[in-house]
Amino acid sequence: MIVGSIAGIGAGLAAIGAGIGIGQIGGKAMEGMARQPEAASKIQTAMLIAAAFVEAVALFGVVVAFLGTGNVG
Protein backbone atom coordinates (compact mmCIF):
# COMPACT_ATOMS: atom_id res chain seq x y z
CA MET A 1 0.00 0.00 0.00
CA ILE A 2 2.74 2.45 0.96
CA VAL A 3 4.87 1.42 -2.01
CA GLY A 4 1.85 2.10 -4.21
CA SER A 5 1.30 5.56 -2.77
CA ILE A 6 4.94 6.53 -3.18
CA ALA A 7 4.88 5.25 -6.73
CA GLY A 8 1.77 7.37 -7.25
CA ILE A 9 3.55 10.44 -5.92
CA GLY A 10 6.45 9.69 -8.27
CA ALA A 11 4.09 9.44 -11.19
CA GLY A 12 2.55 12.75 -10.14
CA LEU A 13 5.96 14.42 -10.04
CA ALA A 14 6.76 13.06 -13.50
CA ALA A 15 3.42 14.44 -14.67
CA ILE A 16 4.32 17.90 -13.31
CA GLY A 17 7.53 17.93 -15.34
CA ALA A 18 5.80 16.71 -18.45
CA GLY A 19 2.98 19.18 -17.90
CA ILE A 20 5.43 22.08 -17.79
CA GLY A 21 7.17 20.71 -20.88
CA ILE A 22 4.00 20.26 -22.90
CA GLY A 23 2.80 23.67 -21.76
CA GLN A 24 6.01 25.22 -23.06
CA ILE A 25 5.74 23.35 -26.35
CA GLY A 26 2.11 24.32 -26.81
CA GLY A 27 2.70 27.95 -25.87
CA LYS A 28 5.69 28.36 -28.17
CA ALA A 29 3.85 26.59 -30.97
CA MET A 30 0.94 29.02 -30.56
CA GLU A 31 3.36 31.93 -30.67
CA GLY A 32 4.98 30.52 -33.76
CA MET A 33 1.64 30.00 -35.44
CA ALA A 34 0.52 33.50 -34.55
CA ARG A 35 3.72 34.88 -36.04
CA GLN A 36 3.62 32.72 -39.14
CA PRO A 37 0.10 31.48 -39.77
CA GLU A 38 1.16 30.04 -43.13
CA ALA A 39 3.48 27.58 -41.35
CA ALA A 40 0.73 26.47 -38.93
CA SER A 41 0.41 22.92 -40.29
CA LYS A 42 4.14 22.22 -40.06
CA ILE A 43 4.31 23.69 -36.56
CA GLN A 44 1.34 21.57 -35.52
CA THR A 45 3.00 18.35 -36.65
CA ALA A 46 6.29 19.21 -34.99
CA MET A 47 4.43 20.25 -31.85
CA LEU A 48 2.56 16.95 -31.64
CA ILE A 49 5.75 14.95 -32.11
CA ALA A 50 7.61 16.93 -29.46
CA ALA A 51 4.63 16.71 -27.10
CA ALA A 52 4.53 12.94 -27.63
CA PHE A 53 8.20 12.65 -26.64
CA VAL A 54 7.68 14.72 -23.51
CA GLU A 55 4.49 12.90 -22.66
CA ALA A 56 6.36 9.60 -22.84
CA VAL A 57 8.33 10.68 -19.76
CA ALA A 58 5.15 11.10 -17.73
CA LEU A 59 3.86 7.81 -19.05
CA PHE A 60 7.03 6.06 -17.97
CA GLY A 61 6.30 7.44 -14.52
CA VAL A 62 2.77 6.07 -14.65
CA VAL A 63 3.97 2.66 -15.81
CA VAL A 64 6.60 2.53 -13.08
CA ALA A 65 3.80 3.39 -10.65
CA PHE A 66 1.85 0.43 -12.04
CA LEU A 67 4.89 -1.76 -11.47
CA GLY A 68 5.12 -0.56 -7.90
CA THR A 69 1.48 -1.04 -6.98
CA GLY A 70 1.76 -4.80 -6.97
CA ASN A 71 -0.94 -7.27 -7.85
CA VAL A 72 -4.21 -5.44 -7.42
CA GLY A 73 -6.22 -7.23 -10.07
Binding site: E55, A56, L59, V62, V63
Partner: peptide, 13 residues
Protein backbone atom coordinates in the same frame (compact mmCIF):
# COMPACT_ATOMS: atom_id res chain seq x y z
CA UNK B 1 9.66 0.69 -26.10
CA UNK B 2 8.59 4.32 -25.73
CA UNK B 3 6.26 3.78 -28.69
CA UNK B 4 4.78 0.73 -26.98
CA UNK B 5 4.33 2.41 -23.60
CA UNK B 6 2.96 5.64 -25.05
CA UNK B 7 0.04 3.98 -26.78
CA UNK B 8 -0.60 1.51 -23.96
CA UNK B 9 -0.53 4.13 -21.21
CA UNK B 10 -2.58 6.70 -23.10
CA UNK B 11 -5.42 4.36 -23.91
CA UNK B 12 -5.35 2.59 -20.55
CA UNK B 13 -5.34 5.93 -18.76
Amino acid sequence: IALMIRLFANITA
